[in-house]
């Protein structure tokens, strides 16, 4: 191999010295068959780059949850050594775990990104959204989400949705067209062929892009482990004051107070998803490290939504209905 082939000689030699220090382990041997994680990573990066190349104004939905953290990590790899070329969008329920908001802000700062926040609370304060009888705010995210998309003229929004999460998601395309009202029409989807993604849309329409559609929960965790990706601490086992409601352990917090007959206990728990604190349940777990979590997830007998999301239990078609209305 030749090393003096450009007219940027001096700079290249610095570059090569830098690269020579890359640990051998990081230089993967291409001749071997790629692992499933490598293949999924390549596919996701391809999708992220396609969207950036073909859309005017993409944004990435970033909640601080593990799927969105993995997506953002993939984006940093897709454009290295450049900056991630789009802002992140957080739809804030106002019912947050403080450590998740803290993590969000640190991540945005670390990567030098712009953060756009759509606030459920502001919509409630303005009387444009009504608090639900059950107090849950996850379903209320749709309106602020669509408002933020419209207001910022985002034409593509990256979501961390995975097809293994839900039966309706299992049918959604990687690039999923939304109409002027943000609605998904499951019976009228474009066929998606080879790795050719058709993102054409008219003014007012936008596209949701799901680069990790083909990942499972276990893939996500193994990837977090492999890449050493940092997550909010509540994904790992910690002591917390909780009480039991509808077969779920809920955290004691400002927006999730126990009723008088619900006993508060201190338990070793962790979260499998982060969302509205008032309806996201914890699981009893002693998985304190990412390696422990990989083992736990592999052995788990409950899907993450079933275990921890009260709002998805409402009906078999809960997710499909919310997606049709413009949800994530």
């Amino acid at each position: 191999m030749s090393t003096q082939i450009t007219n940027e000689d001096t700079e290249l030699s610095v570059l090569e010295k830098d690269l020579a220090e890359t640990p051998v382990a990081a230089q993967r041997v291409a001749a071997e068959r790629l692992s499933s994680l490598d293949t999924l990573e390549s596919e996701a990066i391809h999708i992220i780059r396609e969207v950036v190349a073909e859309f005017e104004k993409p944004a990435l939905l970033f909640s601080g949850g593990k799927d969105s953290v993995v997506m953002l990590h993939l984006a940093t790899k897709a454009f290295w050594p450049g900056k991630v070329p789009f802002p992140v969008l957080h739809v804030d329920t106002g019912h947050n775990f403080p450590e998740v908001i803290d993590f969000r802000d640190r991540t945005v700062e670390r990567l030098g990104l712009k953060l756009v926040v759509g606030s459920v609370q502001e919509f409630i304060d303005r009387g444009e959204l009504a608090e639900r009888a059950d107090g849950t705010r996850n379903p209320l995210q749709t309106v602020p989400l669509l408002d933020a998309i419209q207001r910022n003229k985002f034409d593509a929004v990256f979501g961390g949705g995975r097809r293994d999460e839900d039966k309706a998601r299992a049918k959604e395309r990687i690039l999923s067209l939304r109409d002027e009202f943000g609605q998904w029409d499951p019976r009228n989807q474009r066929p998606e062929l080879w790795n050719l993604y058709n993102g054409r849309h008219t003014v007012g329409q936008h596209v949701r892009a799901f680069p990790i559609s083909n990942w499972t929960e276990l893939d996500v965790w193994r990837y977090i482990e492999r890449e050493g990706i940092e997550l909010p601490g509540l994904y790992y086992a910690h002591e917390r004051e909780v009480y039991e409601r509808d077969g779920m352990w809920r955290a004691v917090g400002e927006v999730s107070m126990p009723k008088p007959d619900e006993e508060v206990l201190t338990k070793l728990v962790r979260y499998r998803t982060v969302g509205d604190m008032s309806c996201t349940g914890a699981v009893l777990s002693d998985a304190r490290t990412v390696a422990d979590v990989v083992v736990e997830v592999a052995a788990s007998t409950l899907t993450e939504r079933g275990a921890t999301r009260a709002d998805d239990r409402i009906s078999e078609a809960a997710m499909e209905d919310r997606k049709k209305d413009g949800y994530f």
Partner: peptide, 19 residues
């Protein structure tokens, strides 16, 4: 080809379907 880069590591070779 003078460089095959992947997120900070330089590869000696790369193969389908790598990004």
């Amino acid at each position: 080809v003078t460089g095959i880069d992947f997120a900070g590591s330089e590869l000696a070779e790369a193969t389908a379907p790598q990004s």
